[in-house]
Amino acid sequence: MEKTTYLEKMGTILENLAKFQRLENDPSDALKKKINGLIQQANRTTKHFNKAIGDFRPGYCYGTVKTHKPGNPLRPIISQITTPTNHVAKKLNRVLTPYVPTGRSVSSVTEFIDILRTAPPCQDIASLDVESLFTNVPVDETIDIILNRG
């Protein structure tokens, strides 16, 4: 794909104010302080998490080309590697992975949708694929739902 086409398609994606907003300043220090407060709270009952230490930057967005679709649209990828939350996300993945039964994971959204359509209503189904769903999930609302479910 030509660079100008790529930049045009990414610009269209990032203009969607329902999913993205332009940062006026770098929120990394405030986020680092907030995440360290949450880590301190969590470590009162468990010692799973280390404080976020070091310099951080906001995440960044790039697009991968969907070559199998007409017009070759882009799939936006939000990289969190440079953020203060990255190490917590990795740790949560390590903590949660042992609880995901083997043979019970899916490899694609299509497979997950097929399971949703055919599963008996009495079964619990969950998606832990935060990477693919991140741009479409209202994160704060989802966290509130999880915290208030208990």
Rank of each mutant, 00 (worst) to 15 (best):
L128A: 15
L74I: 09
G11E: 03
K19T: 05
Q123H: 11
T97C: 04
S28I: 02
Q123N: 09
Q123A: 13
R117A: 10
D140A: 13
T5G: 05
L14V: 13
H87D: 09
I53W: 08
D55K: 09
P27V: 07
R94H: 12
A18D: 15
L116G: 01
F56I: 13
D55A: 05
A30D: 06
L7D: 06
G37W: 12
N50E: 12
P84R: 11
K51S: 00
L116A: 00
L14Y: 09
N72V: 06
V100W: 00
K47G: 15
K51H: 06
E15C: 11
H68G: 15
D140G: 10
K9R: 08
M1I: 11
Y99D: 04
T135A: 07
N25G: 07
S108K: 01
Y6P: 00
L147R: 11
G59K: 05
D124T: 10
A18M: 11
V95S: 01
G103H: 04
V100L: 13
N72H: 05
E131R: 09
F134K: 14
R94M: 05
R117W: 02
Y60H: 10
K32D: 03
S107T: 13
L38F: 07
D140W: 05
L147E: 14
S132H: 04
S105R: 10
V137L: 05
N136K: 07
K34W: 04
N25M: 06
V95F: 09
K91T: 08
K33H: 10
S108P: 07
P101C: 10
R57A: 05
S127A: 02
C122Y: 11
V100D: 06
I35Q: 02
P70H: 09
R57W: 15
N25R: 01
A119P: 02
V130Q: 02
G59F: 10
L133G: 12
P138S: 08
D129W: 14
K66L: 09
L133W: 14
C122R: 15
N72Q: 05
P101G: 08
T142G: 11
E2H: 12
I115C: 03
R22Y: 04
F56A: 10
F112S: 15
G150H: 15
P101S: 14
S127F: 00
P73K: 02
I77P: 01
D29G: 06
P70K: 04
S127M: 01
T118G: 02
T64V: 13
N136R: 12
K9Q: 15
D124S: 14
L7C: 07
A52C: 04
K19E: 00
T118E: 11
A42E: 05
S28N: 08
T67P: 03
N43C: 05
Q80M: 12
T135H: 00
H68V: 03
T12I: 11
H48W: 07
T12K: 10
S28H: 04
L133P: 04
D124V: 13
Q80L: 15
K9N: 03
P120N: 12
T135Q: 01
Y99H: 14
V137R: 01
T64Q: 13
H87K: 13
I125K: 04
R22C: 07
N148Q: 09
I53M: 12
T97M: 12
G150F: 08
I77Q: 02
A42Y: 04
T85R: 00
K91N: 07
T67Q: 12
M10Q: 03
C122E: 05
R44N: 10
P101R: 05
N36K: 03
D55I: 03
K47N: 03
K3E: 11
R44C: 13
